[in-house]
Simulated assay, not measured.
Amino acid sequence: MKKVSRPQITSEDLPDPTLSFFHKPHTITLLVITILSLLYVALFSNDSDENLNTKWGLLAGSMVFIVIGVILFRDGPFIRPHPAIWRAVLATNVLYEMGLVYLLYQSKSSARGIMKFFDNSLGVPLPEKSYAENCGFTYTNVRDGIDIFVLAHSLGWFGKALILRDNTLCWIISILFELCEYSLEHQLPNFAECWWDHWLLDVLICNWLGIYVGNRWCEYFKVKSFKWNRIRQIPTIKGKIKRAGAQFTPSSWTSFDWAPTQRLENYFGFIILIILFTLAELNVFYLKYLLWVPPEHFLVILRLSLVFLFGLPAVCEYYDFYSNPNVKKVGAHMWLTMATVLTELLIIFKFGAGEFPAPFPNIVIIGWSIAFSIVVLFAVWQFFIKPRFFAQKQVKVE
């Protein structure tokens, strides 16, 4: 297995004299700006609208916390476009996790009421919608099944391909999620889809397109020659602009070689990653159902966007821990992302009590029991029986 270490700053990444402002800490500057902003609020804010004041207060408190995180948190695995950006992402993840913990201690009705704090139109039951009503494989039905979520599927899998950097892993999770939809359609009506919606529109068109384009991006960065010239050394204005834009691309690229069959630890680490990724996908559907948030609402889009940002450095740190024996613990991004996904799951368990009275169909129970048995039996064969069998066979030959 390829060993990997955290990206190191090379001589090409040293501060460019023409951009020295962006490479200095500016902690005092941030402190002055923060205090002046709070001073303005203290002296000139309008206190007549308590609801608006509460919203602005929470927003300001969140922004101050992110500033504190940018100053005090350690750098993550990425240095582009600037390490401070990823420290801000980590601080945002902390805020999101704290919000989830607060939500966990509320009642279901209170949690739904909290959603009205973000949008007064929320807090009302959602209409049940099934996509399995007209399942004839006709042009009209297929055309009617195409909506904005088709684009969302492709964009989502483009992002997942950038995070996972492995074509096989993407396809495993893609197919696994469709099987989860089959298994859970008795709980969530919008999981009920026609067969061609599952396997043609979702998997073979939308997911394939996103995975394909994402993998092509990964291949581009894999073969790209990473040689960074400082802007001051570039003679033309066009070249300077191009170099400035390249600041928002990776400074280097590490391909992920998951190799799940190499070691028992790899195998279970691979399975854990698949489970966490699938849970992160399923959680959003259950949360919007239980909290009465429409799928096209900005809160759902915001959550998906944040999880994408959280996942980029998190999976990189996970792979570092997964593949490098010298790394003894997961990084802060990965630890916090795992905590976030599991806290969302706890909220679903709590608020889902009594919401899904229908029992799991026998075919679902039997199917997942067989799948679990295959996963366990393959591990027993691959890592215990097979090595001994070939070892004994080799001894006999000698």
Rank of each mutant, 00 (worst) to 15 (best):
L151V: 15
P357I: 08
F78G: 06
Y318A: 05
L100S: 04
F177P: 01
L14S: 13
S121T: 14
P361K: 03
Y212P: 00
D257F: 07
R303Y: 08
L169Q: 08
Q392A: 15
F310P: 02
L43M: 09
W292C: 12
V307Q: 14
V284L: 13
V150R: 00
S11L: 12
F298I: 15
S11H: 08
I175T: 11
M338L: 04
L201Y: 03
L122F: 09
G123Q: 06
W196N: 02
T29Y: 06
N190M: 07
N134F: 03
S110C: 04
F44D: 07
M98F: 11
H23M: 09
L58P: 00
I146H: 02
K242V: 13
Y131Q: 05
K3W: 06
V67S: 12
L276G: 09
S121G: 03
I146C: 02
S109H: 05
I275V: 15
A60V: 03
K350A: 10
F73T: 02
L100T: 05
V341T: 13
I35D: 05
S45Q: 10
Y319A: 07
A42Y: 15
L309M: 12
E12A: 12
F177M: 12
Y212S: 01
N266L: 05
M115E: 06
Y267W: 14
L291D: 12
P294N: 07
A371M: 07
